[in-house]
């Protein structure tokens, strides 16, 4: 149910200006210009990368069920629209402490570290180091090995300290018992087996997808808590590199670096061996995310604030409609304007 409500929330925000695949790409955390623009302009930062491995098939199936239930309609152009009944369902949605845009799927890396450190310490405490690591990723293994060496985990009292830090963090007021039941049973250790999603779903009588959403929310709250609580020593080190420091995707970051070194779009294209449209996507991303980025070079002698106001008067973010109203501008220019404009709307609404 939570998942369906989130879809309804997105459909509502997308204002009949995007197709039904837009929420899908956003939930999967697709790093394309269009999706990243949608995240910002429609205020959907919470849900970015909520289910990176969601298949198109299961998504379509859920959408189909939602149409059957009469919560939304999808027209012949694949544009979804929320129904009256859908709005009622949406109104029941709780407020989520999700921050997908900030963590971008990295919260999973944090959890992988946490689960392997927990498993290891549990076995250290039991004096039995013969175990098969619960995480298979070599990178996680190396990270955990390095971390444990750095904090001299064999010292008297280390495990106690680690345990206390977890306990303190879990006592955050924003976390519910359900959050913590899920999180603690997704951890395993010496003679303590983990519990599968299916089993949790069965025992908690809650839909599996909803549990996964709550799990994600729980990780975001835990990570927020770790960064705020100055008394913690070990957990902040475990969350190193998890929070996105540059709001840009990696590829856009590289383009931005080249641009800041003074290269032109054409030069960047040839250095990076990328298509013009891709580089343009990166500039749109920069326009959206970097407060100091100026789009003046793309509008040599015009009053940008004035054009933005005109665009706002159109009350749409649909590119095709805007292009008809402002044929003098290229699609790229219009996207840049939207990106900047979207940001100022952001500031007004929050």
């Amino acid at each position: 149910m939570l998942f369906q409500q989130i879809i309804l929330h997105m459909v509502n925000r997308l204002n009949e200006e995007r197709t039904i695949s837009a929420p899908y790409h956003l939930i999967r955390g697709k790093r394309s210009g269009q999706t990243i623009q949608d995240v910002k302009s429609y205020h959907l930062t919470k849900y970015f990368a909520l289910f990176p491995r969601l298949t198109k098939q299961s998504y379509d199936q859920i959408i189909h069920q939602m149409i059957e239930s009469g919560w939304l309609r999808v027209n012949e152009l694949s544009i979804p629209q929320i129904t009256e009944l859908g709005e009622k369902v949406l109104n029941q949605m709780p407020t989520f402490h999700l921050n997908g845009w900030l963590y971008r799927g990295n919260e999973r890396i944090f959890f992988q570290r946490l689960s392997l450190v927990t498993q290891t310490l549990s076995h250290v405490k039991a004096n039995d180091l013969a175990f098969i690591p619960i995480q298979k990723d070599e990178k996680i293994h190396n990270w955990v090995r390095h971390f444990l060496k750095m904090v001299s985990y064999k010292n008297e009292g280390f495990i106690e300290e680690f345990y206390q830090e977890l306990k303190t963090t879990f006592q955050s007021a924003a976390l519910t018992d359900l959050h913590l039941t899920i999180l603690s049973h997704r951890l395993s250790g010496y003679q303590v087996s983990g519990v599968t999603w299916q089993q949790l779903s069965h025992m908690l009588e809650t839909d599996q997808m909803d549990l996964e959403i709550l799990f994600q929310e729980c990780l975001h709250i835990v990570l927020d808590e770790i960064s705020l609580n100055t008394k913690l020593i070990l957990l902040p080190r475990m969350s190193e590199g998890i929070k996105t420091t540059t709001p840009l995707t990696e590829s856009a970051k590289r383009t931005a670096d080249l641009y800041n070194q003074g290269h032109s779009i054409e030069q960047i294209m040839s250095i990076r061996q990328l298509k013009k449209s891709t580089i343009e996507d990166h500039f749109v991303e920069m326009a959206m995310n970097e407060p100091l980025f100026s789009i003046h070079m793309f509008f040599p002698c015009e009053d940008i604030q004035h054009i933005i106001q005109q665009i706002k008067n159109q009350q749409t973010k649909k590119l095709r409609t805007l292009k008809e109203a402002f044929p003098a501008y290229s699609y790229f220019q219009l996207r840049l304007l939207l990106a900047i404009g979207g940001d100022s709307i952001d500031q007004q609404s929050t």
Binding site: T118, Y163, K167, D177
Partner: peptide
Amino acid sequence: LQSWENRLSSLF
């Protein structure tokens, strides 16, 4: 399922 406090203390 255990309470999260019990689960955590049995893990460690």
